[in-house]
Amino acid sequence: MRFLLIFIIAILLTSCENVINIDLNKAEKIIVAEGLIELGSNGWIRLSYSSDYFDGNKPEYIDNAIVTLSDNNGGSEQFKYKGNGMYLGNLLKGKPDKKYSLKITIGNKTYTAESTLFPPAPIISVNFEEQLFQQPGDLTKSYSVILKFMDNPFIENHYMIQIQLNDTLENNSYILLKDSYYIVNGTIEYKPLRHRFAQGDSLIIGLYSIDKETYKYYNQLNDLKVSGMGASSTPYNPLSNFGTHVMGYFAAYSSTFQAAVVK
């Protein structure tokens, strides 16, 4: 819908875009956390503060936090500070079906987030199909990708797909899907129609198994990406799993990759 609206506006109307100056309020700075534990790797987190919207400086990093990662089997470790807001672990490595808990203490305040690491979903095949409809301005034929992968039919699964096109990671909306939209039979065939490729493009497709809460968080980030367009809802802050006083997220996930060339 949003895409169509913008599309119609663009072709029909005398629209124009200008960069303008706007006075914005200066909000009190808030803690920003970006934490991750991947299958087979150590966990990490980057901590910083939010800044004024038009501030051109680098973020103010937080270097005095105490960060502890623990799992639901009693494993626990304290991360080491490595500079630039980065805290690394070197003991616990991501294991499937484990629930991880990440605790941050800054001064006398503590924030805790949890995430469950789901097992990876094996990719069966990556194929391409000629797009049935071309977009205005398309000179050559475009293709869409068809990703087929295994889905454990006995549990509820959530996925995120990232596409790296010719060595650059696409910064478009996150591609999110849940298996409850599909008839359960052990495999899912998915065709992201909005993503179009040309012959000869080389892709690396990453398939991330994420938990339900992470799915929700990234879905909210997607809302934020399109907010401001005519048909979108009022923008809001995605709800962090660290609580309402923190922006950002701590995720546990596993991933599988496959490279392919469009032909």
Partner: peptide, 14 residues
């Protein structure tokens, strides 16, 4: 927005 922050290599409005 009244502020901004970085997450997943991108800038987000607060």
């Amino acid at each position: 927005p009244s502020g901004k922050y970085e997450y997943d290599r991108q800038v987000w409005a607060y």
